[in-house]
């Protein structure tokens, strides 16, 4: 079985994010592997381990996990982390003309790489913590003409039957859905607990193949790059006007009543 995990490098979600003009300042802050993508990598590893004669991932398992990322060259750091968790190889599509691209372009590029790779499963996080659109997995399924099992917090894979079944939770309720390979899967953080890379994993990751390709090299001729021009334009980015400092009281036996008095003052009740 061949599994692709789409991973993105994002600004660290624990630090204050800044804008550089109209785009997120990606250089001024620490960048990390999108945390939800760690859950996708973990799930891919568990699928392989469950179906490996030795119980472990890697070449002797008979399966292969490839990381796919579109981003600047420094995104290799995020890919190394994924490799040190246990993925087998990684490909980074990096091209100056991709700077500032939107979800249509990102999905076009990722789908192109996936389509040439003979994959059975594509795993994604449910969202990237910077864009937070949650659209790439559905876009990939649409572009590839594959089934989608998105937002699944439980996933069962039957390799011999090329069959995937998942439980997803949406606004409507809890759905149990299934599909035949090839499938695009997206996973939330409830699905598992990602492992920490071991020392051996970190050392081993340095020898694993990590290739960087330009658009030309993945088969997008220079003239089609125009197709990748973003369809959305940001007109303005305004920091939220600072909130007027709130009232803070210490409860000395009347806190609940004071809370209700505030609600009345604000005409909530």
């Amino acid at each position: 079985m061949k599994i692709a995990v789409c991973v993105k490098q994002v600004p660290d979600s624990w630090v204050e994010k800044k804008m550089d003009g109209q785009v997120i300042d990606r250089l001024g802050v620490d960048a990390v592997l999108n945390d939800l993508d760690e859950y996708a990598i973990e799930e891919a590893l568990r699928i392989v381990e469950a179906n490996s004669p030795t119980g472990s991932a890697g070449s002797e398992s008979g399966h292969e996990i490839s990381l796919i990322c579109m981003g600047p060259e420094r995104a290799t750091e995020a890919l190394r982390k994924g490799l040190s968790m246990g993925a087998d190889n990684a490909i980074l599509i990096s091209d100056p003309s991709l700077a500032g691209s939107d979800s249509l372009a990102t999905s076009l590029v990722l789908a192109k790489v996936i389509a040439s790779g003979n994959f059975d499963l594509v795993m994604c996080g449910t969202e990237s913590t910077d864009a937070r659109m949650s659209v790439i997995p559905a876009m990939l399924a649409e572009r590839l003409g594959w089934a989608q099992l998105t937002h699944v917090h439980k996933l069962d894979i039957d390799v011999s039957k090329s069959y995937a079944q998942g439980v997803r939770s949406t606004e409507i309720g809890i759905e149990n859905i299934s599909a035949d390979f090839p499938v695009v899967v997206s996973v939330p953080d409830k699905i598992n607990v990602p492992r920490y890379p071991t020392f051996k994993g970190i050392m081993g990751s340095k020898k694993k193949p990590l290739i960087i390709k330009t658009l030309d090299e993945i088969g997008f001729a220079a003239e089609t790059v125009g197709m990748l021009a973003p369809w959305t334009a940001v007109n303005d980015v305004i920091p939220r006007p600072p909130k007027s400092k709130g009232i803070k009281i210490v409860d000395t036996g009347n806190g609940g009543n004071e809370l209700v008095a505030f609600l009345e003052e604000q005409r909530v009740i």
């Binding site: 249509l104 659109m133 949650s134 559905a138 876009m139 959305t232």
Partner: peptide, 18 residues
């Protein structure tokens, strides 16, 4: 969740910005 996936797929099918 579903609304965004519908939007995503419609954007691809019609080559529209989202």
């Amino acid at each position: 969740i579903t609304g965004k996936e519908i939007a995503a797929r419609t954007a691809i099918r019609t080559n529209s910005g989202i």
